[in-house]
Structure formats: structure tokens, C-alpha cells
């Protein structure tokens, strides 16, 4: 860790101004990712702008939209009655992540920007295009058991590590962003950038922009949702593969479905083709398996992560079966 300047912001406008004054600034909310990476010398902010006291913690329902303040704590959101009822996948995803202590500290906005657990990213001795653009990628031919099989590039196969954003992707959440020109709202999926040739660019946030809230729409589809996480141990671990799904049934058919994958992709991965394959299909294992095959059809594996293809498919089948109420 290197010496840095620590400042406390008393408004979101002030926070953005403080951040723009220096070349390398970081917002500090829960600190659960940032401080770790500063200790590892991966994050080297000149200035840390503490936004943790800003009044952005509310969870409010306005009509059919639930707006969750960016500084709401993961625990508070997970146990919020409206969230648990209207968006079960969100609550389940939050509770499957990290530990009780970390969930009490981590914030929703920060969680969207959680950085990869790629071991080659997290220690400065390795080559990493994300950390040091153009330096190469030691993960490609290294120990890549945990690495992504979807959305990868020749420059980066780092897995997006989060759970919540996967659930949010499946539920078509929006992100509210405050910038100099005021507030803008984008689809969650538009927040994330595929690594491509420039994996150092992870989000579409402009310098000095601040996430202030996420928004979710209350609708029957989202109430029938589920998050399934598969991992080596029973708790306190990142996903080997995870699935967020939502299904709306119409008689004996699937009217519409949403599927997003975690633990297997470089960004929260919406499986749009698989969703299309499910529309109008009966809710049975055969349809689920077909959707799973479609979802993973573009997978590119490396030496140690080939198992993720089959594991993700099985997780999709299980999650769909669960959310359809064992209808299969």
C-alpha cells in the first residue's frame, strides 16, 4: 500500500469534484474491494474520496419501480421485504456472496464495480493486460481453473466475480449515474464492457461519474426468479458457475424467460439466445437442457476451466427447474 490522500465528501457533487481534481481518484463506500487491492498495490489511488456518508441508502418503491440507493448495504437490501418478495434472485444473490461481515460493509453501488479475482490481476508480479495494458496475460496459459469461458478475448479471460450484478442482469435492472450533465440511466448490461483488446476498460462510466442508485421493475416475471450458485465450498466463496433466472409461465408453456450467468464470463452474462429458445417451450428438462446448450454454445475454454461448460449447463437446468416450481 502506498500513501494516499483521504477526503470525505459531503455531497455527491462535491465527491465528483474532489475525484476530478486529481489524476487517480477512487470513491470509497464499503471499501471491501478497494482496500484489499490497495494493500496488494493493484489500486494506487492518489486520493480516496469517502462517499460512505452520503444520503444514498434508501430503498424506495415508486409505482412499479424499486429504487435502491447506491450506498445501501448488501445486507440491508438482501433482507428488505420488498426486494425479497419482488426480486427473490436479488436477495438470494446477495446472501450467497461473501460473508456476513463483508455484506454488512459492502454497498450496492460498489458491488457493481467489484473487480475480478483473477490471481494474475491481484498480484503485481504477473503480466496482466487489465492492470498494465499491453503487458500480456499470464492467465491464458497459467492456472485458469476459475477463469471465464464466455466473453473472453486473447487479451483477458478474467472472470467477473460478482453475484448481485448477475441477478440484476437477469431482471433487466437499470443503473442511475450522476455526472456533470446531470443524471443518466442506463441498462445494467450497458455498464459493463467486454475485455476485447483493452481489458483495462471495464465499465462505461466516464471519469468523475458516480453511481447513485439501481432501479428494478416490479412485474410477475421478476417475482418468479431464482439465483443458484455452484462453488467448491458451501459458503464464502466465488462462483464456479452461477445462474440467475426468471420465468413467466402461461398455462403449460413458458411465456418469457430471463437467464444470466455468473462465474463463467468476463461480465454479468445475459444469455439472450437461451431466453429466446425457452419462449413458448414447455417447462421441462428437455427444454431447459436445450436452452443450456444454447447459452454455452459460444464457450471458449482453456486448460483448466473446460468443466465449467458442463457445470454451467447443469446449473441452468437446475435453476430453471427450481424457478418453474419443479414443473418438469
Amino acid at each position: 500500500m502506498r500513501a494516499f490522500e483521504y477526503v470525505v465528501a459531503d455531497s455527491s457533487a462535491a465527491a465528483r469534484a474532489l475525484a476530478r481534481e486529481v489524476g487517480a481518484a477512487r470513491f470509497y463506500a464499503g471499501g471491501t474491494t478497494l482496500v484489499d487491492l490497495m494493500k496488494a498495490d493493484v489500486e494506487r489511488p492518489q486520493r480516496v474520496v469517502d462517499i460512505s456518508r452520503l444520503p444514498l441508502t434508501a430503498i424506495e418503491r415508486r409505482g412499479d419501480v424499486v429504487r435502491i440507493g447506491a450506498l445501501a448495504r448488501n445486507s440491508d437490501v438482501a433482507y428488505d421485504a420488498t426486494v425479497a418478495q419482488a426480486f427473490p434472485a436479488v436477495s438470494e444473490a446477495l446472501l450467497s456472496g461473501a460473508s456476513g461481515q463483508i455484506r454488512n460493509s459492502a454497498t450496492i453501488g460498489g458491488n457493481l464495480l467489484q473487480r475480478t479475482r483473477c490471481t494474475y490481476f491481484r498480484e503485481t508480479r504477473w503480466r496482466c493486460n487489465k492492470r498494465e495494458p499491453g503487458s500480456g496475460c499470464d492467465a491464458l496459459d497459467g492456472f485458469n481453473r476459475g477463469h471465464a469461458i464466455l466473453g473472453t478475448s486473447d487479451a483477458c479471460i478474467a472472470t467477473f466475480p460478482g453475484d448481485l450484478p448477475v441477478a440484476l442482469a437477469a431482471l433487466s435492472a437499470h443503473v442511475v449515474i450522476e455526472g456533470d450533465a446531470g443524471e443518466r440511466t442506463i441498462a445494467l448490461e450497458d455498464l459493463y464492457l467486454l475485455p476485447g483488446d483493452e481489458p483495462q476498460h471495464e465499465t462505461s462510466l466516464a471519469p468523475g461519474e458516480l453511481i447513485t442508485a439501481i432501479e428494478l421493475r416490479v412485474e410477475p416475471l421478476h417475482a418468479r426468479s431464482h439465483y443458484l450458485k455452484v462453488r467448491d465450498r458451501a459458503s464464502y466463496e466465488f462462483a464456479l458457475a452461477s445462474v440467475a433466472c426468471a420465468v413467466e409461465l402461461d398455462g403449460g408453456r413458458i411465456a418469457q424467460a430471463r437467464i444470466a450467468l455468473g462465474g463463467v464470463a468476463t461480465v454479468p452474462w445475459r444469455a439472450v439466445d437461451a431466453e429466446a429458445a425457452l419462449a413458448g417451450a414447455p417447462p421441462d428438462d428437455s427444454a431447459f437442457r436445450h436452452a443450456a446448450d444454447v447459452a454455452l454454445s459460444g464457450a471458449r475454454t482453456r486448460a483448466h476451466n473446460g468443466y465449467k461448460v458442463e457445470l454451467a449447463k447443469r446449473a441452468i437446468v437446475r435453476a430453471l427447474r427450481t424457478v418453474c416450481g419443479g414443473a418438469a
Binding site: 490471481t119 476459475g146 465450498r233 458451501a234
Partner: peptide, 18 residues
Amino acid sequence: GAVVTNNLADYHVPVNAD
């Protein structure tokens, strides 16, 4: 010839739930 799982997120020990 270097250890890559040199932390308790990558070197898994049982947690209570296990």
C-alpha cells in the same frame, strides 16, 4: 515455479458451512 493460490480466497479451507 511460483505459488498462485497464495491467499485464503484461492486456497480453500473449510468454512463453518462445510
